[in-house]
Every structure is written in structure tokens, then in C-alpha cells.
């Protein structure tokens, strides 16, 4: 087993950014921590090759994205060492349309959410998203289209119902 200080340095420098990505991808701090740790464990195993051939951060994000949409989360996982404290993250939520959207994101199937996060948080093109998730561009577009339609419907319904209960 290698013991590479560059791996340690990578984790120290980039773990917070990866957790941020994990958080927007999953929508909750525990899953974000699970996903980030799991991806880093795999990066550790593949480190010599990844460091030689590609950018470790994109590799880790690719693993996180694919894990998230895979059946991984439906399985019993090895309990990973660190779980973040249960802070009242939602207290910091903004109000109005932003909160509606964040809530509506929870209702999306994971692939739809992943595609939207990759498009609007990571700013990737559809072709890049397709390569990263290992699906066709048509699939990416289909997920994006349906995800956006659902968000739009949810936000509209929300504002409609608050209107009628005024």
C-alpha cells in the first residue's frame, strides 16, 4: 500500500470542495460525507494510476457522480468513519423561490438531479456530462428536460397554492 504525501495534500486541499459538490448532489450533509469519503477511499486505491494519468479531482467527482446514481446508496454500506454533526442546516435556507427550488430538487430522481447539478453547478456541457456519467447525450438531455419540467411544475404549484390560501 502506497503512502503518498501528495494524496494527503490533495485531501487536505480539496475535501471541502468535494463535500460542497456532494452536498448539492445529494441534498443532505450525511450523504455528502458518505459519498465524499467513499470516493476518496477509491481514489486512494487508484492513486498512483490516477495521479499519473488524469486530474485526481475530476476523477473523484466522476466517482461521486456515478456512485450517487448507481445502486450504491440502496445497499448496506460499510460504515464510514466520519459523519458530520446534525446541524440545523435548513435554518440557513433562504426564503421564497430558492427554498421552493431546493425542496423541489429533493423530489427529483437521482439521475435527473445529478444532471442538473452537473449542468448548473459544475457548468459542464451535455457531452461532458454524458461522458462523466457514462450515458448517451440523449439520456442527459432527457434527464435535464424532465428534471427542469418537474422543478418548474413544483415551483408553479407552490406559488399557486400559497396564492389560493392567502
Amino acid at each position: 500500500m502506497h503512502d503518498d504525501p501528495r494524496f494527503d495534500a490533495f485531501v487536505a486541499e480539496r475535501a471541502d470542495a468535494l463535500l460542497r459538490y456532494g452536498y448539492v448532489l445529494t441534498g443532505n450533509p450525511h450523504d455528502a460525507a458518505d459519498l465524499t469519503q467513499e470516493a476518496l477511499v477509491r481514489l486512494h486505491r487508484a492513486w498512483p494510476r490516477v495521479e499519473r494519468k488524469q486530474d485526481p479531482e475530476s476523477y473523484t467527482r466522476m466517482i461521486m457522480s456515478r456512485l450517487h446514481i448507481s445502486i450504491w446508496r440502496k445497499r448496506r454500506r460499510e460504515s464510514l468513519a466520519w459523519d458530520p454533526p446534525d446541524l440545523a442546516y435548513e435554518d440557513a435556507l433562504p426564503t421564497g423561490v430558492e427554498r421552493d427550488l431546493w425542496e423541489a430538487l429533493r423530489g427529483l430522481p437521482r439521475k435527473q438531479r445529478a444532471v442538473l447539478v452537473l449542468r448548473y453547478y459544475e457548468d459542464l456541457s451535455d457531452a461532458e456530462i454524458a461522458a462523466l456519467l457514462g450515458v448517451s447525450q440523449g439520456t442527459v438531455r432527457s434527464h435535464a428536460f424532465h428534471g427542469l419540467s418537474k422543478l418548474r411544475a413544483a415551483v408553479q404549484t407552490d406559488s399557486a397554492s400559497s396564492w389560493s390560501t392567502r
Binding site: M1, D3, F7, D8, V11, A12, A15, D16, L19, R20, Y21, G22, Y23, V24, G27, P29, A32, A33, T36, Q37, L40, V41, R42, H44, R45, E78, L80, A81, W82, P84, P85, L87, Y89, A92, L93, P94, E98, W102, Y121
Partner: peptide, 21 residues
């Protein structure tokens, strides 16, 4: 904005990760 609410990594994260691996 949501990303700003993400948990912060603890300093011991790298040793956890290495041990699990």
C-alpha cells in the same frame, strides 16, 4: 448558495480514508 451550507471536512479525514482503503 446550498454549497456554502455543506459540512466542512474534519482534519482526521485523510487518516480515516486511508485506513478504510
Amino acid at each position: 448558495r446550498a454549497a456554502e451550507r455543506a459540512p466542512r471536512a474534519p482534519g482526521k479525514l485523510v487518516s480515516h480514508v486511508t485506513a478504510t482503503s
